[in-house]
């Protein structure tokens, strides 16, 4: 940015802030509201999540434990007729058993047009939200870059039971600490790409992946400290905003 532009923006900044202060000079302080108490956790997070994902016309494939993930992924790819699938470098290799006609391509900086030639991508997730059937990717282990899960037409996402939280506020609380430490990008996915722009009819598949497969695994990932130690961050105790 040129010095000139910086000067202009600096002046604008000062003036906007001054206008705000002038506008509020007579206003009494308004304290932040205390956070809402978390609602009682529904007992059936897993089933609720599965139902809500399916409502978006995404496919859900069950796995009884992490040992079954490779089989479940292979089944999802087989249904689509195989092809080349992008995977992040950090995806556990035990998940990947390529069925005939399928090949896994490790994403080490594939360009957009490389990605566009692939059949799909396979990832894990950061957490999932039962109330809305939402999956959150945060670029952490097993998730890769955003472009990788966006450009190819089919997305297979592995979700462990212990990664599921009840609702959006709990999800935000679970992600907040990581967000406060540095630059980060989250993608919240609720079903396949869709539009309601034509007469408010929902049409699936516009620019993002047209098909979404969720591999839903009972329990937690075994490599993350054994059973009883899920990868899902737990929501911190409620504390006042600000």
């Amino acid at each position: 940015m040129s010095v000139d532009a910086k000067g202009r923006s600096g002046k604008a900044r000062d003036e906007v802030l001054a206008r705000i202060r002038a506008a509020l000079s007579a206003a009494a302080p308004v304290p932040p509201p205390p956070p809402l108490p978390p609602p009682p956790a529904p007992p059936d997070l897993l089933e609720r999540f599965a139902r809500r994902v399916a409502d978006y016309r995404a496919r859900v494939t069950r796995a009884a434990g992490e040992v079954e993930v490779a089989r479940a992924i292979a089944a999802c790819l087989g249904r689509e007729g195989g092809g080349r699938y992008a995977v992040p470098p950090s995806l556990p290799s035990s998940w990947l058993k390529a069925p005939a006609g399928t090949e896994f391509v490790v994403d080490r900086g594939l360009g957009p047009s490389d990605l566009a030639r692939l059949a799909g991508s396979v990832t894990g997730c950061a957490l999932a939200v039962a109330e809305t059937g939402t999956i959150v990717l945060d670029g952490g282990p097993g998730q890769g870059r955003r472009a990788m899960t966006l450009v190819p037409d089919h997305l297979v996402c592995v979700v462990f039971e212990r990664q599921i939280v009840a609702d959006m506020p709990q999800a935000a609380a679970a992600l907040a600490d990581a967000m406060r430490t540095g630059p980060r990008a989250l993608t919240w996915i609720s079903g396949p790409s869709a539009t309601s722009d034509i007469e408010l009819n929902r049409v699936e598949g516009v620019h993002g992946p047209r098909r979404l497969d969720v591999v839903l695994v009972a329990g937690g990932p075994e490599d993350a400290g054994g059973r009883g130690e899920g990868r899902a961050p737990q929501p911190p105790p409620p504390s006042g905003p600000d």
């Binding site: 989250l186 996915i189 609720s190």
Partner: peptide, 11 residues
């Protein structure tokens, strides 16, 4: 219940 995609990024 939720829109298909929400991107939340910082910097």
């Amino acid at each position: 219940r939720m829109n298909p995609y929400t991107t939340v990024f910082s910097g």
